[in-house]
Simulated scan of single mutants.
Amino acid sequence: MRFGKIEYLNLLPFDVCIKAYPLPSYIKKCILLKKSYPAKLNQDFLFGRIDAGFISSIAGYDSHYAHRACPSGIIAKGAVWSVIVKKGSGFDYQSDTSNALSQILGLQGEVLIGDRALVFKRSGGEFEDMGEKWWERTGLPFVFGRLCFRAHGELIGRISRVFNKRYATKRKKIPHYMLAAAARRSGLEPWYILEYLEHIFYAMGSKEKQGLERFYREVRLRRIKRPSRA
């Protein structure tokens, strides 16, 4: 199985879940091996280079309506910290969904996502939090990424259910050695990473689906181009 995973701190709990999940070691290696930024994984998924993964919501449009997406995502219910717009200009080459969201919200500035956004926030720079702006506008969660599949849907579905159940709480338990490694890689303190993870949710419920479909409707109305193989 070829699995793609966003290489950001927001999926650190998923790494923990996979390490504990009863799978053959070669499958675990496959799941944890292919890591990249969201826009690159979008292309890998659309061109069939990966079978499943956490895909940016805008690239998961067809999977959502074809029922080839699991009830797991990368979700904000208000401020998210890691998807921001700072003063400046330009889109973030790493994220298709966040660039689309900045257009929908009418935000002017440079889009930053993931660990780069967290480092900027930690430094005290001025920014607008897109998760917070979406919540203020709609009262709905925003789904930044979705666990989608082209194959191995039954296995991915089982993993999704276990993952959602294990991380249904606001506070995320991360083994010390994994937290320390993430802190070294990102340059952020362990306590700050844990505080950030309290702003991330994973289980897709009715409100989350409403938020996702509201986003899709805005994309259609504004004729924002979705990622494609073209």
Rank of each mutant, 00 (worst) to 15 (best):
F3N: 01
I6K: 05
I6F: 09
I6N: 11
L11S: 06
P13G: 09
V16Y: 04
C17L: 12
C17M: 12
K19Y: 08
A20Q: 13
Y21K: 00
Y21P: 01
Y21M: 01
L23W: 06
L23G: 04
Y26T: 07
K28G: 00
K29R: 04
I31K: 00
I31Y: 00
L32A: 00
K34A: 00
Y37V: 10
Y37W: 07
P38L: 13
L41T: 12
N42W: 14
Q43V: 15
F45Y: 14
F47E: 15
G48M: 08
D51M: 07
G53V: 03
F54V: 11
I55N: 13
I58H: 09
A59I: 08
Y61Q: 04
D62H: 06
D62Q: 09
D62V: 05
S63V: 12
S63Q: 15
H64I: 12
A66D: 09
H67L: 13
R68S: 01
R68P: 02
R68K: 06
A69M: 11
A69K: 12
C70I: 02
S72A: 11
G73E: 10
I74M: 10
I74Y: 01
I74F: 03
I75Q: 01
A76I: 03
G78W: 15
G78T: 10
V80D: 00
W81N: 07
K86V: 01
K86F: 00
K87C: 00
G88S: 05
Q94D: 14
A100I: 10
A100T: 11
A100H: 10
L101E: 10
S102H: 11
Q103N: 03
L105S: 05
E110L: 05
E110S: 13
V111A: 15
I113K: 01
D115C: 04
A117C: 09
F120A: 01
R122C: 04
S123T: 04
G125R: 06
E126F: 14
E126Y: 15
E126W: 12
E126V: 12
E128H: 08
D129N: 08
M130R: 13
W134T: 12
W135N: 00
T138E: 11
G139W: 07
G139N: 03
L140H: 11
P141A: 05
F142T: 01
F144P: 00
C148L: 13
R150N: 09
R150Y: 03
A151I: 13
A151S: 15
I156D: 15
R161N: 11
K165S: 12
T169H: 03
K170D: 12
K173N: 12
I174Q: 12
H176P: 06
Y177L: 00
M178I: 10
L179Q: 10
A180K: 14
A181S: 04
A182N: 05
L188W: 05
E189Q: 06
Y192H: 08
Y192E: 11
L194N: 00
E198T: 10
E198G: 05
H199S: 13
F201A: 05
M204Y: 01
S206V: 06
S206P: 07
E208Y: 08
E208V: 03
Q210S: 14
Q210V: 05
L212H: 10
L212M: 13
R214K: 12
R217Y: 09
V219W: 03
V219G: 02
V219E: 03
V219Q: 00
V219F: 02
R220T: 11
R220W: 10
R223V: 11
I224T: 08
R226Q: 06
P227H: 13
S228L: 07
R229E: 15
A230I: 15
A230W: 15
